[in-house]
Structure formats: structure tokens, C-alpha cells
């Protein structure tokens, strides 16, 4: 038994895709938002709050002993300082390296070259962190390729130490974090109207002046977002400094890890993590405070 549906052939039936119809269901957008939000809430926020709670509660109840320990034992503040310093150096160096690359990506017109450069930038993402780090130990050691090359071409008389010191950590971490910087910069630079630079040149600005006065200030949003991304990620680095760094390059995450899985002192681990968390928030707040009046950032699009 088939039911016949009669349609008036003169009335055109408006065809609506099912996906479009879905968006008409009231409240669906909110529901879609709810899923990732719940994910973040339960798996990230709650677990982190739970973890931080350990820093002020132990078997005896509320206590500040773990947090005060951060300040009475100088090692924690020292390591924090080292961590901030290394993250800052890595941020500056990746910015210096990434800026020309991102600029080139925007400037190059040939699609082939563009994807080639982009590929080169993204390759580090495809290789395991451990493999990359070990590869660096091979390259950087005293008998490694870099030192041998520099000696053979006569730049160096004897090998320079590139491994197990700050240089090693910075090289390794910059390599890992560079793509984030390039992508952040590229995203913003892509959006900069090249005609602005042309306009400046038309008014009499030499190309480098037009770049400094027009392009660079407009790319600052990318500089800021890329730097924050790299800096904040750099604060939590663990494997790279442990393998490429020397004893004075201990990062704070190493201390956290040691307390979590070696000495099982989770209260102390939580206190260190809290310290790192607060310092990171402070860094972010300070940078926003200083940049709050930048007209480029005010731009709402």
C-alpha cells in the first residue's frame, strides 16, 4: 500500500539541505557548544582544580606548608626563574627566526614554493618529540656534525659546547616551538592589506621604512599571540631540557614530574604547579595591561 502524495507541480518545492534544516532546531547551537565545553570542564578544569586542591589540603586538613615551602627553599624560585628565562629566550629566538619565514610565506606568489616552505615549517610536527631531541644530541655533540663542519671550514679551532647547556635547550625547544610561531605570524600577516604598504611607498616611504612603519606594527597581533603561545608552552617543557640541558637548565616541570612519580609527594607537586600557574597568569595579565591601548588590538572584526 503506497500513499500517494500529491504535489502541485506549479509550486516549486524549495529544496533545503538536511544540514541546513538542523540549524533551524532551536537551541541546537547551544547543545553543540555544550559538548566541547563539558569536555573541557570535566577533563581539564575539574581535574586541575582537584590537583591544585592538593597543594592546600593534606591528611591533616588545610595547610599552607607546601606553598610556604616554595619560598623557604630557594630551589623552587631559582628553578622558576630558570624556566621563565629559558621560555623567554626561546620565545625571542623563535620570533626572530619565524618572522622572516612567515613574511616570505605571505610574499611568495608561487603556490608551489608556498606549500614547500609551509611543509618545511610543519615537518617538525610529524616527528616524535623524542626522536627529534635525540637527533639534536647527535648533531650538537662535540663530535657531532655541526662542530665538525664548523671546524672543517675553519670557523672554529676546537669544538664549542652546544649540548648540555642553555644553548642546547634553546636550540631544541626553538625547533619544537617554531611552527607555532610561524603559523601565528602567518595567520595575521595574511590578513594585512599589502596595499597599505604600497600606499606608504606611494607617499614617499622607502620600502624598508614602509615595512617598519606600516607592516610591522600591523603584524604585532601575530607577534603577541605567537609569543604567548610559545612562551606558555615553553614554560611546561620537560623532555627537551632534560635531555639537551645541563644541570643549571632544570625546568620547573621536571620538579613537578619528580614529585609526582618519583617521591610521590603530590602535595608539593601541586604547590609547584600552582606557583607556575599563577606566574603564567601574571605574565599574561602584565602583557595585556601594557598592550591594552594598542589600536591594532582594539580592532574588532
Amino acid at each position: 500500500m503506497a500513499t500517494e502524495v500529491k504535489t502541485d507541480p506549479r509550486v516549486p518545492v524549495k529544496r533545503v539541505s538536511p544540514a541546513y534544516r538542523l540549524t533551524r532546531i532551536p537551541g541546537l547551537q547551544w547543545l553543540l557548544l555544550l559538548v566541547p565545553f563539558a569536555y573541557i570542564l570535566f577533563l581539564v578544569v575539574f581535574s586541575i582544580i582537584g590537583f591544585f586542591k592538593l597543594s592546600i589540603y593534606d591528611e591533616t586538613g588545610f595547610t599552607l606548608q607546601y606553598l610556604t615551602h616554595m619560598f623557604t627553599e630557594t630551589v623552587y624560585l631559582q628553578v622558576l626563574w630558570v624556566t621563565l628565562k629559558i621560555a623567554a629566550i626561546v620565545t625571542v629566538i623563535s620570533l626572530l627566526l619565524a618572522y622572516p619565514v612567515a613574511y616570505l610565506l605571505v610574499k611568495v606568489e608561487s603556490k608551489k614554493w608556498k606549500s614547500l616552505i609551509m611543509g618545511a615549517v610543519l615537518i617538525p610536527f610529524w616527528i616524535s618529540l623524542l626522536v627529534r631531541t635525540f637527533a639534536w644530541t647527535m648533531l650538537l655533540q662535540e663530535q657531532g656534525i655541526i662542530n665538525k663542519l664548523l671546524i672543517s671550514v675553519g670557523i672554529l679551532q676546537e669544538p664549542i659546547p652546544l649540548l648540555y647547556n642553555t644553548a642546547g635547550v634553546v636550540i631544541g625547544m626553538t625547533h619544537v616551538l617554531l611552527p607555532y610561531m610561524v603559523l601565528s605570524l602567518y595567520a595575521v600577516m595574511e590578513g594585512i592589506d599589502q596595499r597599505l604598504v604600497q600606499a606608504a611607498q606611494g607617499m614617499g616611504a622607502r620600502p624598508w621604512k614602509a615595512f617598519i612603519q606600516i607592516f610591522f606594527p600591523l603584524s604585532l597581533t601575530g607577534v603577541l599571540s605567537g609569543s604567548l603561545l610559545v612562551f606558555v608552552q615553553g614554560l611546561g617543557y620537560f623532555i627537551t631540557p632534560a635531555l639537551l640541558g645541563g644541570p643549571d637548565n632544570m625546568m620547573i616541570s621536571v620538579l613537578i614530574q619528580r614529585n609526582v612519580s618519583e617521591t610521590l609527594n603530590w602535595h608539593l607537586a601541586s604547590a609547584i604547579a600552582l606557583l607556575l600557574f599563577i606566574v603564567t597568569l601574571l605574565v599574561l595579565l602584565i602583557s595585556f595591561f601594557f598592550l591594552r591601548n594598542n589600536p591594532v588590538l582594539k580592532e574588532v572584526e
Binding site: R195, P217, L218, N294, P295
Partner: peptide, 10 residues
């Protein structure tokens, strides 16, 4: 210019 090319940061 057609889009005026005003410098947005100035």
C-alpha cells in the same frame, strides 16, 4: 586607493 588604504594603527 579604492579601499582608502588608511593605516588602521594610526
Amino acid at each position: 586607493f579604492q579601499n582608502y588604504a588608511l593605516f588602521p594603527h594610526m
